[in-house]
Simulated assay, not measured.
Amino acid sequence: MGKVFSALAVSVDGYITGRDPGPGRGLGDGGALFDWYFNGDVPSRVFDGFRLSEPSARFFDAVAGRVGACIAGRHTYEDSDRFGDGGSPHPAAPLFVLSHRPAPQMTGRQRLITTGPADAVAAARDAAEGKDIALTGGVLVTEALKAGLVDELILHQVPVLLGAGRPYFHSLPEHVRLRLLEAVPAPGVTHLHYEVVR
């Protein structure tokens, strides 16, 4: 059975977007979080157009190669302009969007789940064919942590203080302990791979 994890770019002060994210504005003024996608000369084997440094390419492609399905929160889905016509944050994986609000007609690899994170994970697990499930969005990750559904957290920590935006993590009812599995320094980013301790 595949693992459930989140791998998001995050500022040192904990934001996964800049100020004023939204439809047509993407992730707001948080573009500095993604400079490392294009600051090297090693093409990604998974994402067309990404040219990463060697350590980032090695780490990023290993993580991206694990993904069999994605789950996105509604804010992330809207901020990302619905990932295009039937698209997903991953080039090959289907997308499950978790939302309690009505959504526009979804097409292609997209499916709406309205009954909570456990049902979203169950649906994604069926589609992932034994591969891992990637979570995208701060509220979604927090709710999945509360429900005990998350196995790993990956922070692509970028050395910038954004000062505002959407946080990676929201209020949790108790501590969540993590065990560091790997730390990979790279130009413009440090990749921090944690296991959630249960």
Rank of each mutant, 00 (worst) to 15 (best):
G84R: 12
F96V: 07
L27F: 15
A7V: 03
A103K: 00
A93M: 03
L52C: 05
S53M: 01
V67F: 01
P23K: 11
P21Q: 11
F96R: 00
G84C: 07
G87H: 06
R74V: 00
P21H: 03
E78T: 14
S11E: 09
A32M: 11
H90S: 09
D48Y: 03
H75K: 14
F60Q: 00
P43S: 13
A69Q: 13
S56W: 02
T107H: 15
F50V: 02
A72C: 09
P23W: 12
P102Y: 06
G24P: 10
S44E: 11
G22A: 10
P91L: 05
P94E: 12
T76N: 13
A9R: 01
Q110S: 08
D79W: 15
F60K: 00
Y15R: 07
T114Y: 02
N39G: 05
S44M: 05
G49M: 06
G68I: 02
D13W: 05
V67W: 02
A9E: 15
G68A: 01
T76W: 05
R66Y: 03
A103Y: 01
G22Q: 06
D81A: 12
V67T: 11
C70M: 08
Q110C: 05
P43V: 04
S56T: 13
S56C: 05
S88E: 07
F38C: 00
D29T: 13
D29I: 09
L33T: 03
Y15C: 00
T107R: 14
Y77H: 14
S56I: 02
L95G: 06
I113K: 04
T17A: 12
T107W: 04
A64G: 06
S56N: 09
S6Y: 05
T114S: 13
G68K: 02
F38A: 08
S44Y: 08
G28W: 06
A93F: 04
L112H: 15
A69G: 06
G22Y: 07
D61Q: 08
T17K: 10
I71M: 09
F50K: 12
A7S: 15
L98D: 10
P104T: 00
S53K: 09
R45M: 09
A62L: 13
F83E: 07
D48R: 14
A62H: 08
P104G: 10
R109Q: 13
D48E: 15
G24Y: 12
C70F: 05
Q110P: 00
P94T: 01
V97F: 03
D35W: 06
E78G: 05
T107K: 13
G18Y: 03
F47A: 08
D79H: 15
A72V: 09
V10Q: 11
T114L: 00
A69N: 12
R19T: 07
R25Y: 12
F96P: 09
